[in-house]
Design a protein around this nucleic acid. Structure first.
Length: 881
RNA sequence: GGGCGGUUAGCUCAGUUGGUAGAGCACCGGCUUUACACGCCGGCUGUCACAGGUUCGAGUCCUGUACCGCCCACCA
């Protein structure tokens, strides 16, 4: 006998333990420790790759608290994990914490009242102040990193507790952190490989820059925000010599950033624009500063926009960078790393001016100001000088921000590390198509993003709490940093911190001295490490045995907002390092929306704490709500659905108690309605298994739930009397066997969604965890029914359907007659067609018991009707037809 | 400007190859029924966004439009 069929039949009365009054309360506290100690979710690493289902779980950012959106999407993954586990897969399901990066730095700064000052020496045994001091205390980089590690460890404990209470079937012995030594090693090693293969490079170039965090950021981390601004119409003058033969002496441009006039290097118009064609090759003088700049032609200039001719500055936006590069223009940068205007000596090389003293005078009022303040000042100056034409015209326009930043991005020239991405565009798009997306349409976002890439991936960040670049640079005898000859760490050396570790061939006392070395001061973009999460969890490269059993993984679950970051970069890294996809499937979760149909904000999400929800509705209730959200679909935050889920769980407790409580022995399934019910259940199993394989867990839950309520409302009522022995031992035996089998199957169908209540019920009558029991198959049900011909199957089915129809009609009439159920019905007359009438003998006894009908009188004829004759006592008048 | 998704009952949503519109919640009425009052039975509720088209037949397929949401691009 197979394992699965034994799941149906072995009901040992001596083993049975039914509670008096089953309840959901306390199930989380009971089962979480039990699962932990019994190791049901522990990964068995002796299983082969074909037997493993490996999940690349998103490591939540440890910089605050988990919110209801996390509960939502992590439940989806857990449901899928549990399905595959029950199907016999060894599920590889580690959890990670993303404690690396800016959010953690910010939280640590606020929590302890500290700031990182990399110039300070490490203080051993450092103890942070009890209260955050003002102004903040400066600490060394190693001390700062210690504080980050300390706080994230605390947060991670709280996170883990919540996940356990939610019932995630994670193997907690495999938890990782993105800032751990192992993650750093993987990250650095992968970087070194890129460097060795020439796929990572360093260059000094204009870079997207956040002036508050004072770091470079990547294209993927940008977002647009609508900001008020204004068009300023500004006149550039043509020197007399240049104006000769022209009908004009000035050129008017429009700009939203007049403070960048000192950084202007050219004007540009479309080559076909007849208005400006005469000017191409000529020069103009910038207002106030009198710098001679060329007028150039470029197809990116839009004749429709503004006056049709634009000022190119170094650098106002990414278009400026394009123009600057393609037109080979000089650099005249004025914005510093902190966003203020730097000091400039007008008249010096590169800053030649027709009137240097005048330029210096104007500029002296601008230097040191932020861009916004400088803008106000220069508008004043332009207005006075007469170079501003008319009033500024207010507009609202989209401005690029770092997604975590507070002020608009600037573009600043700096030395940064890049990973070559652009040249891989087509290969990556092919990878995106190779990946199985759930839902499929999410693939568009990947392709869309790949097609929109306009530069390689900048991975260096001028921050502290992150994975350092494993490189040093030689210092020349003159003490200059020689960036062109980086000294890479050896593979075996990783993880290293170049600020404390010493490169091969050097001594520690050569750090920072001429002829010595310095460490690369930067850390990697957090995505540069997160994109290696499959390699981190699968043991690359130190545990080749584990790696062979888990990689490429099966599933990446994640939300759609990080397709362009986490998903894209993970595909990129696996492509570069392993020439493969990192996983075969991507399951994309939607967001949780508040009742206003907006994305549930963190503030709102934190008002409703996940733990509070779990306590109020039970973990199963909350999971029910989450699992009803289809893949990729945004779902409303809806406590009413959690209540429904809770009710379902309670119903399962009570129905299970009923199904198991009979003292009658089980027999063979011989009653037609029993067979019909089991066949219907077998069809359900077939249907939902296919749905689950396609990641449509919401359908599985919905269809299973619908079947279960029908089972309770109709089938249980129909067989109640029979299973108590009213029709003899054979009928009772059939009902009991069918009830037990159906319960076993339904519990297993519900188990991925409602792990607590199903485990509880399972424990009443069975050994072992339901979560490692086999996923049901149609065959295990069909084989216990036995093989009957098509005619019998149809008769069974029609008998069951007919019985439910009669129940419905009689219940309706009883309800309309307002008769209590305890009052017996004296008789029911049934007039119907010959086929249905022939079914009455099969189901009549069950119906009499279920409906409390003394007798049915069945005739063949028209009109078809089912009529309650009367009730007793007291007898009442006939009720309508 | 390009792309993707959505629009079905008061609300949240199903509706698998085209075949008489569904569920839950809410609401109304009834019922203590030895699994469950955290329950049970019953009832009410629709121009399937709009306009065309294909078809014997369209919520479902095609074309277009409107609105909502998201992604990307543009940013002088």
């Amino acid at each position: 006998m197979s394992q699965s069929s034994s799941l149906l039949t072995s009901l040992d009365p001596a083993r049975l333990r039914l509670p008096e009054k089953p309840a959901l309360e306390g199930l989380e506290a009971k089962w979480v420790p039990h699962w932990e100690s019994s190791g049901v979710f522990r990964f068995d690493r002796t299983r082969s790759r074909a037997d493993v289902f490996a999940i690349d779980t998103p490591p939540p950012t440890v910089s605050g608290s988990l919110h209801v959106g996390h509960v939502f999407s992590y439940t989806h993954t857990d449901v899928v994990a549990r399905f595959h586990r029950m199907r016999g897969k060894e599920v590889f399901y580690p959890m990670g914490w993303d404690d690396n990066g800016l959010p953690t730095e910010r939280r640590v700064q606020n929590y302890y009242g500290v700031r990182c000052d990399p110039s300070l020496p490490y203080v051993p045994e450092f103890v942070p102040p009890a209260q955050p001091p003002k102004p903040p205390l400066s600490v060394s980089r190693p001390n700062f990193i210690e504080l980050c590690a300390r706080l994230t460890t605390e947060d991670e404990k709280v996170f883990e507790q919540l996940w356990k209470t939610l019932g995630l079937s994670v193997d907690w012995s495999m938890t990782y952190a993105t800032i751990s030594k192992r993650s750093q090693r993987v990250s650095q090693l992968a970087f070194l490989h890129l460097l060795q293969r020439g796929q990572a490079y360093q260059v000094e170039a204009p870079t997207l820059w956040d002036i508050d965090f004072k770091t470079a950021v990547a294209q993927a981390e940008l977002e647009d925000r609508e900001m008020p601004g204004a068009y300023h119409k500004i006149a550039f003058s043509l020197p007399d010599a240049e104006a000769r033969g022209l009908s004009r002496s000035t050129v008017e441009i429009e700009t939203t950033r007049p403070e960048l006039i000192p950084a202007c290097v050219a004007l540009v118009a479309h080559p076909d624009d007849v208005r400006y064609q005469p000017l191409f090759g000529k020069h103009v003088l910038t207002p106030l500063f009198g710098v001679r700049v060329p007028v150039r032609a470029h197809t990116l200039a839009d004749p429709e926009k503004g006056s049709g001719i634009a000022m190119i500055c170094t650098f106002g936006d990414t278009t400026d960078v394009t123009w600057w590069r393609e037109l080979s223009l000089p650099v005249r940068a004025i914005i510093q790393a902190d966003g203020t205007l730097r000091d400039i000596t007008w008249g010096a090389r590169g800053w030649e001016s027709a009137q240097p003293e005048r330029a210096q005078q104007y500029y002296s009022e601008l230097k040191g100001l932020s861009a916004a303040k400088a803008r106000a000042k220069i508008v004043e100056q332009l207005s006075k000088s007469g170079d501003l034409i008319g009033e500024p015209r207010p507009i609202t326009h989209a401005v690029k921000f770092f997604e975590k930043g507070d002020r608009p991005l600037e573009i600043i020239t700096s030395r940064q590390w890049f990973i070559k991405t652009i040249e891989l565009r087509e290969a990556l798009i092919a990878r995106g198509r190779e990946l199985r997306w759930h839902p499929e349409y999410m693939e568009n976002r990947f392709e869309n993003w790949a097609n929109g890439l306009n530069g390689d991936w900048c991975i260096s960040r001028q921050r502290f709490f992150g994975v350092p670049f494993p490189v040093w640079y030689p210092l020349t005898p003159q003490g200059q940093v020689d960036h062109d000859h980086p000294i890479a760490a050896g593979d075996a050396q990783t993880p290293i911190d170049p600020s404390t570790d010493v490169p091969a061939g050097y001594r520690a006392d050569q750090r920072g001295v001429p002829g010595g070395f310095v460490g690369d001061p930067d850390v990697m973009d957090t995505w540069a490490t997160s994109s290696m999460s499959p390699q981190i969890v699968c043991g690359w490269p130190d545990d080749p045995d584990l790696f062979a059993r888990t990689f490429p993984m099966d599933l990446r679950p994640q939300a759609h907002d990080i397709i362009r970051t986490w998903l894209f970069t993970s595909v990129l890294r696996a492509h570069l390092e392993h020439d493969s996809l990192p996983w075969s499937h991507a399951a994309i979760s939607g967001w949780v929306l508040d009742p206003d149909r907006k994305k549930m904000s963190k503030s709102k999400g934190n008002v409703v704490t996940p733990l509070g929800l779990l306590e109020e509705h039970g973990s199963d209730g909350v999971r029910y709500w989450a699992a009803s959200g289809r893949p990729g679909t945004d779902t409303a935050f809806d406590p009413a659905q959690m209540k429904v889920g809770r009710r379902l769980a309670i119903k399962i407790l009570n129905a299970s108690k009923f199904a198991l409580m009979s003292a009658e022995p089980q027999g063979k399934v011989t009653a037609p309605v029993d067979r019909a019910m089991l066949r219907n259940l077998a069809s359900l199993v077939a249907e939902v298994t296919v749905a689950f394989e396609g990641y449509d867990y919401a359908r599985v839950l919905q269809r299973t739930e619908a079947f279960f309520w029908g089972f309770c409302d109709d089938y249980l009522e129909l067989v109640k009397g029979r299973r108590y022995g009213e029709q003899g031992a054979e009928g009772a035996g059939s009902a009991n066997a069918a009830l037990t089998a159906a319960l076993s199957v339904m519990l297993r169908l519900f188990a991925p969604f409602l792990p607590f209540v199903t485990e509880e019920v399972w424990s009443w009558w069975r050994d072992g965890s339901i979560h490692t029991a086999a996923w049901p198959t149609p065959d295990e049900l069909l084989s216990m029914i036995g093989d009957h011909g098509e005619d019998v199957r149809q008769t069974d089915e029609r008998a069951y359907t007919w019985a439910t129809k009669v129940m419905f009609e009689v219940r309706k009439q009883r309800s309309e007659a307002k008769q209590p159920l305890k009052v017996p019905i004296t008789g029911v007359t049934v007039k119907t067609d010959a086929d249905s009438a022939a079914l009455m003998p099969i189901v009549e006894a069950d119906l009499r018991a279920a409906l409390r009908v003394v007798a049915f009188a069945t005739t063949v004829g028209e009109p078809r009707e089912i009529v309650v004759v009367g009730y007793e006592p007291p007898p009442s008048a006939d009720v309508r037809t």
